[in-house]
Amino acid sequence: MNDNVKNCRKDIVNKIIPYARKDKRIVLLVCDMGFGVTDKFKEEFPDKIFNMGMMEQGTVGIAAGMAMTGLIPIVYSIVNFLVFRAIEQIRNDVVMQNLNVKFVATGVNNYFKFLGSSHCCGEDDKKIMQLINMKVFDPYEGEKIDFNKMVKDWITDTKPGYFRV
């Protein structure tokens, strides 16, 4: 694996921070996980991070509403819960309305296999997102990936985007 993306699961939230400094519309919605990973963001932006609990479907709906008001919400959740639980809301509420909602799916490539198969989905998430016309950002795709450029392309795009870490 490319050393540039080796720790991207741990680094993704910290890579968002400079963009959140520049763009006050960025908010982070966390689905009851990511503790430790989100600490720096929470320290710098305590009023722009929300623990939504275990409710991915509701979180996506809330993110869509936030995007309709001009905010740029980032939904951060474990990959299989985000994709398998909330796919209808992602498709109908975000993709079909072309809302600027960003998704971070953590634990891709079966990172959480020690928690059992309920926390794994191989690359099905990627296929499902492509099926509903969601742009997928996958730093694990090749050896020559520039992680920082990929984060910039994802966060500055005005269309919905799905980032796999």
Rank of each mutant, 00 (worst) to 15 (best):
Y76N: 00
V104T: 02
R164N: 11
Q57I: 13
V151D: 04
G107N: 07
E123K: 14
K127E: 11
M52K: 00
D138Y: 04
L131Y: 12
D11A: 11
K42F: 10
K42D: 02
S117H: 09
D93P: 05
P46F: 09
L71V: 01
T158V: 09
V60Q: 01
N98E: 12
R21N: 06
Y76A: 00
Y140G: 03
V75H: 02
K126A: 14
N14G: 10
V75N: 01
K113A: 14
A63I: 03
I16C: 05
I87T: 05
T59H: 01
Q97L: 14
P18Q: 06
M66S: 04
F50N: 02
N2Q: 10
V79W: 01
K152S: 10
M52L: 06
I87S: 08
C31L: 10
K102A: 05
V75Y: 04
R9G: 00
Q89M: 12
Y76H: 13
G161A: 10
I145C: 08
I12T: 06
V95F: 08
N100W: 10
E44G: 13
P46R: 03
V75G: 00
C31A: 15
I16S: 03
S77P: 04
F137S: 09
V5R: 01
W154N: 13
L28V: 07
E88F: 13
M68T: 09
K15E: 15
K102P: 02
A64V: 05
N2F: 05
D11C: 04
I90W: 08
K22P: 02
I132S: 06
Q97S: 08
F50I: 07
D3S: 13
E143P: 06
M33V: 08
K48L: 12
C8A: 08
L115A: 13
D3I: 07
K152P: 00
W154M: 11
K22R: 12
F84M: 15
N7R: 00
N80M: 09
E141R: 01
E43T: 11
D124Y: 15
L71F: 14
R21L: 07
D23N: 15
D124A: 13
I78T: 05
K144I: 03
C31Y: 01
Q57F: 07
L131S: 13
K127F: 11
G161M: 08
V79K: 08
K6E: 15
I145N: 07
